[in-house]
């Protein structure tokens, strides 16, 4: 069965990465035995510190770098043996601003479409340029554009050949708030049309705000892949904050076992607990708080952010 819109097989991962490793000529191992499936139509965020192997992984899928071991299927096509079918599906926005200087915006975007073997389609190019607020710059030389505009041009190039998969490598590095907002709107719109989006970032908020699933990569190893919500629930810790009527100067001895923290000049008691454990200890704590004679006027809980999870994981594997 195929999806009428994309011609891709449904129910199968749109990208399937198996046992991919990469060791460069100088002996540096950028990736070790990576397995990853990307589902059709999802927004997948690949998170990791600088030098973790995010770009190498993207470059291997896109065919810019050859893998030392393993194989990659894109839309069911082996990305080496059937590279044409595989690459036609992919649009890539690299991290660095690689642009020609003297070409016009219109020509450079049309060039990419031609390179991907697609028939000229001015209406599509127009639509892409308008969506990226580049329409009034279409006849301008690229070198006259600002950095943010150049980034938009690179996105327009990647979208020029109507890809089914879009790679955004560190899309918001050095990008202003407006472009960031535009970009996320665009990504959501693209997903609406069934396009799969894979983005790399080291900004956790980004993944948290937009991704369906998150993969965490560090030192060339994919440490963890999960639904964003599940990931946060699974690994997340919660803070229980008790607002006290009367400030404390010290934590009462009867509560010492809970590892509480006193904040806000003694007006707030903070208890951190594991969401997944069967006994969170919340009830017991509340009882003990009552026994200690403290009056609680408000209770609040806060989920720890992806960033906290991420920092914890990266430290564990370091």
């Amino acid at each position: 069965m195929t999806d009428a819109g994309s011609g891709l097989p449904t129910g199968e991962p749109v990208i399937s990465i198996r046992g991919v490793s990469k060791t460069y000529g100088d002996g540096f191992t950028a990736l070790s035995d990576v397995d990853l499936d990307i589902e059709q139509g999802e927004i997948f965020a690949l998170l990791g510190p600088n030098g973790a192997g995010k770009t190498t992984l993207i470059n291997i899928v896109c065919g810019i770098v050859g893998a030392s071991a393993g194989r990659v299927l894109v839309g069911g096509n082996d990305n080496v043996a059937k590279y044409r079918q595989a690459r036609e599906l992919i649009g890539l926005v690299p991290q660095e601003l690689h642009t020609d200087a003297f070409e016009t915006v219109w020509n450079t975007v049309s060039f990419t479409r031609g390179l991907f073997g697609k028939k000229t389609n001015p209406a599509h190019i127009e639509q892409v340029l308008k969506a990226l607020s580049l329409w009034d710059k279409k006849d301008g030389e690229i070198m006259t554009l600002s950095g943010g505009m150049k980034r938009r041009v690179m996105i327009a190039k990647a979208l020029s050949h109507e890809p089914r998969i879009l790679f955004l490598d560190e899309p918001t590095a050095g990008v202003d708030v407006e472009l960031r907002k535009d970009m996320w709107n665009l990504v959501r719109e693209l997903r609406g049309t069934g396009v799969t989006v894979i983005l790399t970032t080291h900004y956790i908020e980004e993944a948290e705000a937009i991704a369906d699933r998150v993969g965490i990569i560090n030192k060339g190893r994919l440490i963890l892949v999960d639904e964003k919500a599940a990931l946060m629930a699974k690994l997340g810790r919660k803070d229980l904050m008790l607002q006290l009527e009367k400030p404390l100067t010290a934590i009462p001895e009867s509560l010492a076992a809970y590892g509480l923290e006193l904040r806000n000049g003694g007006r707030e008691l903070v208890y951190t607990f594991d969401v997944v454990s069967k006994r969170t200890g919340v009830t017991r704590l509340l009882n003990d708080v009552k026994k200690a004679g403290l009056t609680v006027c408000d209770i609040e809980t806060k989920q720890s952010s992806l960033e906290d999870i991420f920092v914890g994981l990266v430290k564990e594997t370091a």
Partner: peptide, 10 residues
């Protein structure tokens, strides 16, 4: 660096 495009094209 624009070679990336040629290398990732079909």
């Amino acid at each position: 660096g624009t070679i990336y495009e040629i290398l990732s094209a079909p």
